[in-house]
């Protein structure tokens, strides 16, 4: 008995349900928690595809670092259900309708695509392992890797400059 399809469907339903709850929940803190749940489901998909490095990085960077940052900002601003801004009902309906149309068009365009008979390799293959990816990252992709460190430095400086309080000049 092959359990892979069951795991796939379970993870897919989990990811879609969590994403829907993230979009629809009123309280921003619940939204963050549902998004973390979505990220765990996507990490499960990565493990199913044997992309172990990306699964671990996804949990550490997204669920660990980025979402904690979001949570900090939300709690710093003291946002909750009462202060949550609301759009009017028609705008929400039109937004959902537009998204549904986008999904319909994309699915209709891609359902007869040429790659329909292709399979994704599941549970095998060594390209997702840290050894292979690390070797590739530090040989062929070493220049983009170094440039990304510069990007991080500029993002850090930018966040500090934007986030700091403006000093008021009283005697100028």
């Amino acid at each position: 008995m092959n359990v892979t399809p069951y795991i796939f469907w379970f993870l897919s339903v989990w990811a879609l349900f969590s994403a829907l709850m993230m979009v629809t929940s009123r309280n921003p803190v619940y939204s963050v928690l549902w998004l973390i749940s979505t990220f765990f489901a996507i990490s499960g998909h990565y493990i199913l595809l044997n992309a172990q490095f990306l699964a671990v990085v996804n949990i550490i960077v997204y669920a660990g670092a980025i979402m904690v940052l979001f949570l900090f900002v939300i709690m710093l601003m003291n946002l909750n259900k009462e202060t949550e801004p609301q759009k009017n009902r028609w705008l929400k309906l039109v937004g959902a309708l537009a998204g549904g149309c986008l999904l319909l068009v994309l699915v209709a365009a891609l359902k007869d695509a040429e790659l329909k008979s292709q399979q994704a390799m599941v549970g095998a293959g060594s390209i997702g392992l840290i050894k292979v990816l690390g070797k590739e990252l530090f040989t062929r992709y070493v220049v983009p890797f170094e440039i990304s460190s510069l990007l991080f430095l500029s993002a850090m400086v930018g966040a500090a400059v934007i986030g700091k309080k403006e000093i008021t000049h009283q005697n100028s």
Partner: peptide, 27 residues
């Protein structure tokens, strides 16, 4: 797994994100 399933799952997740951008007002 057939690649189609992953394609449609990703499209659904992308569309949910898009609907969220269109319908929410909280930055």
């Amino acid at each position: 797994m057939p690649i189609n399933y992953y394609l449609f799952l990703s499209l659904a997740l992308f569309t949910i994100g898009m609907v969220g951008v269109l319908t929410r007002r909280n930055a």
